[in-house]
């Protein structure tokens, strides 16, 4: 097996995550799909690291994980506070700024 297959898998997972962000309405599930996309990117980084034979790709993947953790903390706090004020976790309901 050629290790390029890991890249194809990463592309597939990223695509599924992107489609999920577009299709789903529940804010929590949309967030999970974003996490899926981040994970697919990490897989690509690790595979590239193996391809080039140096560890820089793994460092970038490590930083991606840290940023993802920070993003999840703030994003879930926003979802909880929106749910408190509007009693809904649907992304369609937050449409106050719409004309």
């Amino acid at each position: 097996m050629n290790p390029v297959n890991y890249l194809y898998l990463a592309a597939l997972l990223f695509t599924i995550g992107a489609a999920g962000v577009l299709i789903r309405r529940n804010a929590i599930v949309v967030f999970m799909c974003v996490e899926l996309m981040l994970n697919a990117c990490n897989l690509a980084f690790v595979t590239f690291s193996r391809m080039h034979g140096n560890l820089d790709g793994q460092i970038i993947a490590f930083f991606t994980m840290v940023v993802a953790a920070a993003e999840v903390v703030v994003g879930l706090a926003i979802i909880v506070s929106v749910f408190r004020s509007r009693h809904s976790a649907s992304v369609d309901d937050a449409s106050l700024m719409k004309l």
Binding site: N26, I28, V73, F83
Partner: peptide, 24 residues
């Protein structure tokens, strides 16, 4: 970090926001 911490955080928020909050 991911399956241990982040996914458990997700499950906590699902618990807070309510399992019944299904998609319209």
């Amino acid at each position: 970090v991911y399956t241990g911490a982040i996914m458990m955080l997700f499950l906590f928020v699902v618990m807070l926001v309510g399992v019944t909050a299904a998609d319209s």
